Amino acid sequence: MQDKNKKNFERSGSTRKQIRFEDSLLDKIESDRAKTNQAFSEWVKDACEQKLKPKSTS
């Protein structure tokens, strides 16, 4: 679990993370994001939620 020693100005219920993206991946994200008009963080959160969805077995 994430260390919860937050500063007074930080939001409760969420944690800031720094992440580095390869340029080619970032280009693909930005291209797709432009079609949806989503904020970058919203797009990334949606992608994470999709990855975490249970996989159906057929």
Rank of each mutant, 00 (worst) to 15 (best):
M1C: 02
M1N: 04
Q2E: 05
Q2F: 11
Q2I: 10
Q2K: 09
Q2S: 06
Q2M: 07
Q2H: 08
D3Y: 11
D3I: 08
D3H: 13
K4E: 10
K4Y: 07
K4L: 07
K4R: 07
K4P: 05
N5D: 09
N5H: 10
N5F: 06
N5T: 08
K6S: 05
K6R: 10
K7R: 13
K7T: 05
K7G: 00
K7I: 06
N8P: 14
N8D: 12
F9W: 15
E10R: 02
E10A: 04
E10Q: 14
R11F: 07
R11C: 06
R11N: 12
S12Q: 07
S12W: 03
G13C: 00
S14L: 00
S14W: 02
S14G: 04
T15V: 10
T15K: 08
T15Q: 10
T15N: 06
R16V: 03
R16H: 00
R16W: 04
R16G: 00
R16K: 03
K17S: 00
K17D: 01
Q18D: 02
Q18G: 04
Q18P: 02
I19L: 09
I19A: 05
R20P: 06
F21L: 01
F21R: 01
F21C: 00
F21S: 00
E22N: 02
E22K: 08
S24Q: 07
L25V: 05
L25D: 04
L26A: 00
D27S: 05
K28N: 04
K28L: 03
K28Y: 05
K28R: 06
I29D: 00
I29M: 01
E30Q: 12
E30N: 13
E30S: 03
E30Y: 00
S31H: 11
S31K: 10
D32E: 12
D32P: 04
R33G: 01
R33H: 02
A34M: 14
A34R: 11
A34W: 10
A34E: 13
A34K: 14
K35N: 09
K35Y: 14
K35M: 06
K35G: 01
T36P: 06
T36E: 13
N37C: 07
N37F: 08
N37R: 08
N37D: 13
Q38A: 07
Q38W: 11
A39T: 14
A39W: 05
A39E: 15
F40Y: 14
F40M: 15
F40K: 15
E42A: 12
W43E: 05
W43V: 01
V44Q: 01
V44Y: 01
V44F: 02
V44I: 12
K45H: 13
K45A: 12
K45N: 14
D46K: 14
D46E: 15
D46R: 15
D46L: 14
D46F: 13
A47P: 06
A47S: 14
C48H: 09
C48Q: 05
C48N: 11
C48M: 14
C48W: 03
E49L: 13
E49N: 08
E49P: 03
E49S: 10
E49M: 09
Q50V: 09
Q50C: 11
K51M: 15
K51C: 10
K51D: 12
L52W: 13
L52R: 06
L52A: 08
L52I: 12
K53M: 08
K53W: 04
P54H: 09
P54N: 09
K55E: 12
K55Q: 10
S56L: 14
T57I: 07
T57Y: 13
T57D: 14
S58W: 09
S58M: 04
